[in-house]
Amino acid sequence: MSNPFQIPEQEQHELDQLGAELRDAMPEVSLSEDFHEHLAAKIENSWSIRSAFQNNRMIRMAAGLLVMTLAAAPVAAWVGIWPQQKKNPPAIGFEIPEEVNVDESGGALGDSEDNQVTGPNDEFEAVEWSPQRRVALERYNRLVTAVASYELHGQDMELARFEGFSDQSAWASASEESLWLEFARRCAQADLSPLSAELVARCTLMLAAPLDRNASKQQRAAYAAWAWLLEGEQAKAADLQMNWPSAPFLTQN
């Protein structure tokens, strides 16, 4: 039984013969005399960036490096600028931020004699300032000043790693070194949160005793820093020309 899809042998032979005839019927084709000349010119002009990329691995590698370098420059610049953009230095002012709670029911603070402080501008209505409020504002502004000073002269990341004490009662026995690191941490992290009563008490206690002549560098730094922050210009050891980080607030003592 024959396969219906099978081409009959006789017809296949005829078609093969027809194909051969068709080939023979095609006129012979030859190239023109100037064909090679034009071809050579085209090949010479065919060099292109695309073909160079396709055929030369070194060019591909060089181009890759160039692209990576070009891409890295803006990224590096952005990465360098980014942290600075994030920082928004707090402003020194005459209003205590809401997050700084002032206990105005407390007793006298320091040697304040004048409980009636007016604003700097006569055009403003005179406002009564409690001693607690005034001291809190002064300390807040000094902390802002310290943060700004650290921005300009500090940037010692080792100091910024100090995390303070989660348990505020631990400040009661904190060393001068810890006090100094806490001060530096606040500056480095721009931490303007209220000073805890335990921390202020420990610093006050430290400042109550005269600085030992043989005190270490960090003891001196802690003494000077907290004296300036808590007492401001009244602190003899204060040095507004803060010299971060080697000897901040250090005086001749």
Binding site: V29, L31, H38, K42
Partner: peptide, 28 residues
């Protein structure tokens, strides 16, 4: 290959000069 490719282009309907131009492009 050149003449054979030129024949191809001519049978497709290319003008002679176009056929040669295209053959050259094939080699490029």
């Amino acid at each position: 290959l050149g003449p054979r490719l030129k024949g191809y282009f001519l049978r497709q309907g290319a003008q002679s000069s176009t056929a040669e131009d295209l053959v050259q492009n094939v080699f490029v």
